[in-house]
Design a protein around this nucleic acid. Structure first.
Length: 497
RNA sequence: GCCGCGUUCGUCUAACGGUUAGGACGCCAGGUUUUCAUCCUGGUAAUAGGGGUUCGAUUCCCCUACGUGGUACCA
């Protein structure tokens, strides 16, 4: 027994971890670390039919990318392992049977067909989905209705069966949620949830309680979708005799779809054209692949349902560790906004150092076939950094610094072109061929030539820019020209005329 | 259907029961940049409805509506 804070993140390896899951991990992690406690990764792989190869590794990589590093996990072990529920199978049966012995659970031998038959039989328009509960369990095939000998017989013959909790009648089940306060449920409305499945695996309900107890978990952070089954868990903590060790619960508000209604799901990304995964999962690009910085990702996740009460919106992991407060987590679900997410990334890109951006930018450039040495990339990056919100945009912003523009907006150039222009640029090339190549010299000589030809600044500047970069974009022309160098600039000017 | 949870600008949100209801994203306009983006300035837009309680309700209570979650041998 200790007062140590221990928080677990317990995902199921049924596919990619979406942003809701990562936020749950983040909040739990922040809370654990603020209290000098432990953060634990436990893999809830009790549903063998939904198990997905590679999902566990994916979860670990995601957490790693986000900087949410578990103190205990299947990979790194810990004092309370194993950390995969499939490897703890024996425990669950033991506790389930303990519950049967104490009269708080019972064996049920109903087949799936019999269950659907029951639901059909008792279905009414007022009650479209009858539960296996205090009313119906007396009519089913279980150790409450069968004689002791019959049950023993069935068990001896290895008849498929489950163990169900025996929910008591007429009780008010109360617990306190960190975010929502006191919550009360009428036990008459609860059903006899399956605790141990026919395959010997526990359901979530049994497994969380047993593992949270065995792993000495002190605080549970999970999605709001668990609120309705929390009273079952409360009952289980009590029946197992662990009431005084029960954790505090914090049911996080849901992250909702940006369009219509409903909670965000793994499939929404593909449908709506924005990422729901942190890293690429199957064909779905993640935030990372789309060019998000981990800092920005953490930031945007943190403010989805939380704020510090001030007008500050930019938080690093360090800031969050200091300022995060579970008491300020919102109750209402939040619609996810990809536009705001992109804005957060732009903010983080602007704040990042050129050096920290370099590796990722280099990768983007290389993928586009642009290879250059670090020193040059850094010079250019410093020039265009504030124009980039998503990392892949760096390619468009930096491309013309390293090779001649492929697409040139000749239409704009030609529109106002005249003999005078040709003369101007020809003379410019001649002058520049003998000019010492500094930004200041270029700018001065360019402007002198404009007055000599009595032309308008705008009339020559824009075509010059377009010849250099290909279009109406980019930093100051003379910055670009001085970087490109004499030879390259002279090659680009008038090349199309 | 039943049960739980929720409800402030389009979106994310702030506001000891007393504020011209604040900020951010987006959008619009202007300025800077003789380009574009950044940046700066301004604008747009909200307390779901109805009852209470109170000198006074965004805030507390009730009802309704709406949203959302659950109602599985899925988590």
């Amino acid at each position: 027994m200790s007062n140590n804070v221990r928080v677990r993140f317990a995902p199921s390896p049924t596919g990619g971890l979406h942003i809701g899951g990562v936020r749950t991990a983040l909040f739990g992690y922040l809370f654990a670390k603020q209290n000098k406690g432990s953060f634990i990764l436990r893999v809830e792989d009790t549903d063998q039919t939904r198990f997905v190869e590679g999902a566990e590794e994916y979860i670990v990589e995601t957490l790693n990318w986000c900087g949410i590093i578990p103190d205990e996990s299947p990979q790194n072990g810990g004092e309370y392992g194993p950390y995969r529920q499939s490897e703890r199978k024996a425990d669950y049966r033991k506790y389930a049977e303990q519950l049967v012995e104490s009269g708080n659970a019972y064996y049920a031998f109903d087949t799936p067909e019999e269950l659907t038959a029951m639901r059909e039989k008792y279905k009414t328009k007022e009650n479209p989905s009858p539960q296996y509960d205090k009313n119906t369990r007396t009519k089913m095939k279980n150790s409450l209705t069968l004689s002791e000998a019959e049950v023993k017989d069935l068990l001896d013959q290895n008849t498929p069966h489950v163990i169900r909790i025996k929910v008591p009648a007429n009780e008010q089940i109360q617990f306190t949620d960190i975010i929502r306060g006191d919550i009360e449920n009428d036990s008459n409305l609860l059903d006899d949830k399956v605790l141990l499945k026919g395959d010997g695996m526990p359901t979530y309900h049994l497994a969380v309680v047993v593992d949270d107890y065995l792993m000495k978990v002190s605080h549970v952070f999970r999605g709001e979708e668990w609120l309705p089954s929390a009273p079952i868990h409360v009952l289980l903590w009590k029946y197992l005799g662990w009431e005084k060790d029960a954790p505090d619960w914090a049911h996080l508000p849901l992250i909702l779809k940006p369009d219509g209604n409903g909670k965000l799901s793994k499939r929404d990304g593909a449908r709506l054209g924005f990422p729901v995964f942190s890293l690429q999962w199957e064909d779905n690009k993640g935030f990372k692949e789309l060019g998000f910085l981990p800092d920005a990702f953490i930031n945007l996740l943190a403010v989805l349902g939380w704020n510090d009460g001030t007008e500050e919106e930019i938080f690093s992991m360090e800031d969050l560790l200091e300022k995060f407060d579970v008491k300020r987590i919102n109750k209402a679900g939040a619609k996810f906004s990809y536009e705001k997410a992109v804005w957060y990334n732009a903010e983080w890109v602007k704040r990042a150092s050129v050096d920290s951006l370099l590796p990722a930018i280099k990768k983007e450039l290389a993928a586009a076939g642009i290879v250059a040495d670090n020193k040059k990339i850094k010079i250019v990056l410093a020039m265009v950094q504030e124009r980039i919100s998503l990392l892949p945009e760096a390619v468009k912003e930096m491309d013309y610094f390293f090779r001649k523009p492929v697409q040139v907006d000749t239409e704009t150039i030609n529109k106002k072109w005249s003999e005078q222009h040709t003369a101007f640029y020809n003379e410019l090339k001649t002058i520049w061929a003998d000019t010492e190549w500094t930004k200041e010299n270029l700018e001065t000589s360019f402007k002198e030539l404009i007055s000599k030809h009595e032309m308008k600044m705008g009339a020559v500047m824009l075509p010059f820019r377009i010849m250099l970069v290909g279009g109406k974009f980019g930093p100051g022309v003379f910055d670009i020209a001085s970087f490109l160098g004499k030879e390259e600039v002279l090659e680009r000017v008038l090349v199309n005329s």
